[in-house]
Amino acid sequence: MQTESARMASAREAAFRVPYPNSRPRSAHLVALDRACEPFVTHLLRDHPGRLALKLAALPDPVAAATALIAALDGTDLLVMISTSGEDSPAASLIAEACHLRRLPVTVFVLDTPERATELPERLRHLRPYAQMLVRAADPDYVEDMLTALRV
């Protein structure tokens, strides 16, 4: 007699999986940590109402902006920090600590180019404390793929 495991692992049985949306759309805050990645973050917002962005370097008072962001974190599913130059930011630290307290996952994306290889240790030193997941990639399109994969 066939076991449950054998019968249920078949392609035929896979067709009977209940067809329903098993999650609601997620929302993410994207935080641009330096000016160089701002156009890229703007691009990521296009046609995605579930994505919100904060461009820290562009603001006259980043700490005040970070405080406002923290107040608006309720309902956010994921926070993504994006860095190209590796500039440190007290505002980023504030946001990361708030996320940590709220158990909100933080993913840090480092655009990793050979030209900036010598800066990498310094960049990582700043960014590591924030991240549950830190991704280094040369291709900025990876962030879009990641957000799509995470249903953001």
């Binding site: 896979a14 098993n22 996952p105 990641m146």
Partner: peptide
């Protein structure tokens, strides 16, 4: 194997640690 012969990845819900 319990996922089925070819898992339907349109239904999965990945998280940050799945990067």
């Amino acid at each position: 194997e319990s996922m089925g012969p070819i898992v339907d990845r349109t239904k999965e819900n990945l998280v940050g640690t799945d990067n």
